[in-house]
Amino acid sequence: MAATTRPLTMPGLYRSHVSRRRRGFDIGMRWLSFGAAVLCVVPLAAVLIFVTVNGAAALNPDLITKPTRALGKGGGALGAILGTLQMVPVAALIAIPVGVAGGIYVGEFAGRRSARIVRFAADVMVGVPSILIGIFVFTFLVLPFKQYNALAGSVALAVIMIPVILRTTEEILQLVPGTLREASLALGIPMWRTVWSVVIRTGVGGILTGVMLAFARAMGETAPLLFTALGSRLVNVGDFGKPMDSLPVFIYVNARQPYELLNQQAWGAAFLLLLIVLVINVAVRARTWGGRIGA
């Protein structure tokens, strides 16, 4: 059969009645999903505004420089600020080596099976209610000594940080192209040196991101500290065998008191904590624009 020319027919370019109805439905659904997206942002905005409005005024020099005093007599959150600034870094000192080394093992050395098991365990750990972690640490670092102590607080925070750091480290290492590992191994560079000087060096920005996010998360944890470091009216600097105050516990305690001044202090401390966590988060996000992997 010779090639026949296809007849030129006008396809239906005009909107049919049905498609007009569909268009209306489409627009309606678009607005609904847009509204849902707005609802997601509202809580963050609300918290920011609420805490800022209530807390900015309460954040005064006294709050930062004065220790906690007896009821109704002023004072500040010095002990809580110093406590958070001690317990979280100590927790990080425990969690970073364990989390990063664990992530390196899972990402670079583990077999497929063991990697899956560790990954699954870490994901479960991330989801475990933090109060359970507090109770868990309580049973072996508080009960035997019959003494609430800051070290137990740091350990509890470290337990929360480890899976976060492990998972981000491992995910970042997966993003490092295999061709770089090959290039390094083909130069006769041993595996451990390849991982250390090529793979980790390429992913270090992303690993740091994970560490900082875990740090920010630990700063805001309250429940695990209630069972461990407890909280304290004294300014505790350096004595990890004794109870220690922290910003979240300070907020929790003071917000429940029937005194306007203490409630105000809680607002101020909340604002301060929010500032610290926001600064860390923004610093982490700012690194994203740097361009390294996961950075």
Binding site: T179, L180, E182, A186, L187, G188, M191, V198, R201
Partner: peptide
């Protein structure tokens, strides 16, 4: 094998310089 690869080097299909 690590020593071997110092004697028998390799160049790959895609250029893969270390980006850092």
């Amino acid at each position: 094998p690590v020593q071997l690869r110092r004697v028998v080097g390799m160049v790959f299909q895609r250029p893969n310089p270390f980006p850092t």
